[in-house]
Amino acid sequence: MGKMKDDVVLQVDDLSIVYHTIRGDVKATNNVSFELRKGEAMALIGESGSGKTTISLSLIRKLPKNAEVTQGQVLYQRENGEVQDILQLSNRQLREFRWQDCAMVFQGAQNAFNPVLKVSKQFEDTARAHGWSDKKAVRQRSLELLKLVRLDPERVYDAYPHELSGGMKQRTLLALSVLLSPQIVILDEPTTALDILTQRAIIDVLNDMQEKLNFSIIFISHDLSLAAEMADVVATVYAGEIIEIGPVNDMFYESLHPYTFGLLAAVPKLDHEQDVLTSIKGTPPNLINPPSGCKFHPRCRFVLDRCNVDVPALTEDLGSHLAACWNKEAVVEARKEQV
């Protein structure tokens, strides 16, 4: 198995995934590569349908049946330095990997709680499936975690899901996700569909949890503000590709890709000034027949002649900030003019 840097827990190399459909192959993930460091929070941002969920499902091998991984590897490094390719795990290994090494909270999962099972039962079942059947110990650990997510532990542990509000369910799921002390937690749209004040509570809880338990997070969101607040590293996904990735401040203050730059220029802010905003022209592409060259070229205000022919690679510019674009200089210039 390939070598990984010591501080990296997950390394995705050149991953491509298609969905086979009657209308043709949906190229939902293309040549995606990234590294997730220990204790780091990474945000995947992008519009609906850009492929965020597909990437995250592949990391725990939960893709739907019509999906096919056409190339790539997903390397996972255990605490003892052992490296495995998730895509090659046997079913038994995979069952262990999920929850123990990597837990995922799915999009809208707060609605997917089994309604007839008490919260305690769902915690116990998860523990037992991983060979931990000492109910008392499970209970003790669960209560600690429920407290960590700022719930009334006893009350919630004994409750049925319908007795909990959406925000309480989401926090219960967060507690459940770390029950078996995974190194990685994946969160798909963790605050979407929750109210503002509930979202705030979830964000605060997540920050607390990460500080205390020190796991790595991959979270997916179409909400740039959430990424600004929670992420150490941000990756922009467009048409199934990571087109820019870098430390959160670089991404927000010195974005290099026209799409990230355009998204930021389209988001209203809450400060006391009037916003000057512009949309990106056109609409996101269809992934059955995506545009040639740079997939963003039909919408790009900085497009060059070569952009519809040559595919730009995700290349390094400054340290760990990477962007896939032939005309980054133009973005840098445009930003200068903005201020």
Binding site: I196, L197, Q199, E229, V248, Y253, L270
Partner: peptide, 16 residues
């Protein structure tokens, strides 16, 4: 007041 204070903003330094 509470609402405005709770909302995250698309600016890392400001929102933190």
């Amino acid at each position: 007041k509470v609402l405005l204070s709770a909302i995250p903003e698309p600016d890392p330094e400001k929102t933190r």
